[in-house]
Design a protein around this nucleic acid. Structure first.
Lengths: 234, 234
DNA sequence: TGCATTATTGACCATTTGGTCAGGATGTAC
DNA sequence: GTACATCCTGACCAAATGGTCAATAATGCA
């Protein structure tokens, strides 16, 4: 229960740590098996953890999902916690990849739209990862406290500062930028996390590309207009 | 794993089923102990299930949270599944309570604002219940499929029809009403489900009443304006 | 008071949990 | 071939899981 660990367990990646450089070249040279199996296990684990949360997921279930014996999963991943942390880190890396910096001189409409779109893409391209993240936060973010209060907070505040300047320049309404970021987050994240609800209510098997495009446009339109941002050239 | 059950396990409430009317009046007349204990257990279970999901929650943890031996929890609740279903039903009842019908002749601004506000209130007054619901959906809604594809879908479609008529009458932009409902849902639900993230990023211990009022006003403002709904009198 | 009902709980059970380990299989380099 | 690495996995373990049950304690009412 004292799993308050955070993500300082840095991923050493599959390339094994430095030292022993001589012996390294030999038996591990190809390492193709390892890579394939690790990929398979990570994918399976992501699905299971996303569905059942950290405690609810069992290594047995993950192993079956990956089509391997449980021992093999442990051979590659060490233990449950390490596997889980590694998945969180991978998801955060994906997340960081689309968080390029913005400047006050950028066009608010373009930036907001790009933000909505890229977040929407992430929810769609990695729904299991999104849900894994959601489950972690739902459970009180025992592994992510540090990240939330550190990196992520900084990122939000940097953006917020720029939004504020845009408001001062009259490029958008003086809304609270933090609530705005949360609005965009929640609205996009929803289509991954609550997929079951969305599909159930709209009577679909899955969301088509066209659906996603429609939703993206809807969100851009409503949120931009709602914040007094005029699309294309301010 | 085949927990695809839905919520037809109707709660028979604590009043015991009909039959045996004669014996009933006696030993159970007060039933005050039962009521108190059930309340305590339900509250504890809601917290634990919300945090860890159905599979991740243990009866032991629930019992400890309620300050009772595990046997006592089972004495009152029968089994884990029944307890869980009962909590889901309770949450849905709360949810239904604020879903009064609306008419085409109502003021769009008032209706939307009331919707946002009441949904926000629910997230705030019952955060654990909201999270419990979220965890259930996140896991693929194994117990709620029927509800989503039935009651809830009907409710959404009824509202959507009205939104569409408003749009025809020029009272709001012709946005897709279903996406709009999801937008409001996600934006409000976010403050219960992602509470840990919100608090972490904004560096707060909890959201004050003033915070919630600000957020509510922000959401109303942006969403109404974003849909072309003019506040007060159309 | 006596009696029926409800309330309480520790002992117990089969199963599942995360994790270890020894021993064998497989592959690569010489 | 031999040597040495990685890869694989069944057997095993202590602890925790959901759940049963019988014995006991409170309680309310005649």
């Amino acid at each position: 229960m004292t799993q308050r660990n955070s993500v300082q367990t840095k991923v050493v990646s599959s390339k094994v740590v430095s030292s022993k450089v001589a012996t390294r070249e030999r038996g591990e040279a190809n390492g193709v098996t390892r890579e394939r199996n690790e990929r398979e296990i990570l994918a399976a684990a992501e699905r299971i953890f996303a569905r059942h949360g950290y405690r609810g997921a069992s290594l047995q279930a993950i192993a079956e999902e990956a089509g391997l014996p449980k021992s093999n999963v442990l051979y590659y991943m060490g233990n449950k916690r390490g596997l889980y942390v590694r998945l969180l880190e991978r998801m955060m890396a994906r997340w960081n990849a689309l968080l390029d910096d913005i400047s006050v001189d950028d066009d608010p409409a373009e930036v907001l739209e790009a933000f909505i779109r890229s977040k929407m893409d992430l929810s769609r391209s990695h729904p299991e990862g999104s849900r894994l993240f959601a489950a972690e936060i739902l459970g009180g973010a025992p592994f992510l406290q540090e990240y939330l209060r550190g990196e992520l907070r900084d990122w939000v505040e940097a953006r917020a500062a720029i939004f504020r300047q845009w408001a001062e320049r009259g490029l958008m309404d003086p809304v609270d930028p933090v609530w705005l970021i949360f609005l965009i987050w929640s609205a996009t994240q929803h289509y991954a996390d609550f997929e079951a609800q969305v599909l159930g209510i709209t009577d679909r098997e899955e969301l088509s590309d066209a659906d996603v495009e429609n939703i993206t446009r809807f969100l851009s339109q409503v949120i931009l207009k709602g914040c007094g941002v005029t699309p294309r050239q301010a």
